[in-house]
């Protein structure tokens, strides 16, 4: 592995405990291994349709989930597996939904892009680019209405940031001081279109300023930076000061979905990111460099994660297809 941009000393300076770093390590690794496995199952024909992997972006959800408390909500796009794992949804249920089986979170009826968990306050899983943005503000509207201090994390991509409904939402969210954190996961591309090819206003968080919403750009490959920015945004929201925008600068290593010609970026660009900015390697280096953990400890964690992921794949293969009677259930509440 090449040298990291963050030196091992940073780990010490940031005063982050071993437990906290290990937690991030574990959670990010779970997402990565899970996604790798999903890619394999797709290749075996066990997963169909679209399957948008989150590999590369793990630090964003893991850092932000570290800022949440019970009752906080989250909503995102179709690139949603990482968000579900990070908020505590079971790997088994997510994987079984990917294979379209009864044991999946939507009993096989939603698929990769459409999973939900009321229990974990995860509101999807949305396939229409940008549509989750006003929905997230609506969840926040309900919290404010009820008078609690919960916040809603509303995740969307750099491409989604060009949808008009995002700005309609900004206007109302600030007008009504809604406790919503808009998390723009700027991974540089919307399918094959780079941010530069879709806008001249490339400071995406900056667009909120026109509506009076504060925001900032964050190194989304650094889980500690994400966590720090998340704390600030959450404090702003919980204090009743209205919405906040976090533009997470991140990168997706894999194609947009499973079949992606990938002609819009160079292999070198991808390799450089992996080598210099990888979020998991970064935490690993912090742990090892500061002497907070040794290789054996990390290996043991790797093994645990691998077991969880393999078990989820087994579960997803073994779980039966939904019963035929499910075709007509759940259409109405």
């Amino acid at each position: 592995m090449a040298a990291k941009s963050t030196t091992p000393e940073t780990g010490k300076k940031s005063n982050v405990s071993k437990d906290e770093l290990l937690k991030y390590y574990r959670e990010m690794l779970l997402i990565r291994r899970f996604e790798e496995k999903a890619g394999q199952l797709y290749g075996m024909g066990l997963i169909g349709g679209f399957c948008h992997l989150y590999i590369g972006q793990e630090a964003v959800v893991v850092g932000l989930e570290a800022c949440t408390k019970e009752g906080d909500k989250r909503v995102t796009s179709y690139r949603d597996h990482g968000h579900m794992l990070a908020c505590g949804m079971e790997a088994n249920g997510v994987m079984a939904e990917l294979t379209g089986r009864e044991g999946g979170y939507s009993r096989g009826k939603g698929g990769s892009m459409h999973m939900f968990s009321r229990e974990k306050h995860f509101y999807g899983g949305h396939g229409i680019v940008g549509a989750q943005v006003p929905i997230g503000a609506g969840l926040a509207f309900a919290d404010k209405y009820k008078g609690n201090d919960n916040v809603t994390f509303t995740y969307f991509g750099d491409g989604a940031a060009n949808q008009g409904q995002v700005y309609e939402t900004y206007n109302m969210a600030e007008l009504w001081d809604l406790p919503v954190i808009f998390v723009i996961e700027n991974n540089g591309y919307a399918m094959g279109t780079s941010v530069k090819r879709s806008t001249k206003s490339t400071s995406l968080y900056g667009r909120g300023l026109a509506y009076g919403i504060p925001g900032e750009q964050v190194d989304g490959m650094d889980v500690l930076a994400v966590k720090a920015a998340g704390e600030k945004a959450v404090a702003h929201c919980r204090a009743g000061k209205g919405p906040y925008i976090l533009e997470m600068m991140t990168y997706r290593y894999r194609g947009h979905s499973m079949s992606d010609p990938a002609k819009y970026r160079t292999r070198e660009e991808v390799e450089k990111m992996k080598a210099e900015k990888d979020a998991i390697e970064h935490v690993r280096d912090l742990l090892l460099g500061a002497g907070l953990a040794n290789e054996d400890e990390l290996k043991a964690i790797d093994k645990q994660i691998k077991d969880v992921v393999n078990a989820s794949a087994e579960f997803a293969k073994e779980s039966p297809e939904p019963s035929v009677s499910e075709l007509y259930t759940d259409i109405y509440a």
Binding site: G100, R101, G108, K109, E321, E326, L327
Partner: peptide
């Protein structure tokens, strides 16, 4: 059929 399109392979066929 009068249902939203399910994801599961068997239900989708139906």
């Amino acid at each position: 059929k009068d249902v939203p399109m399910p994801y599961a392979a068997n239900l989708e066929k139906l």
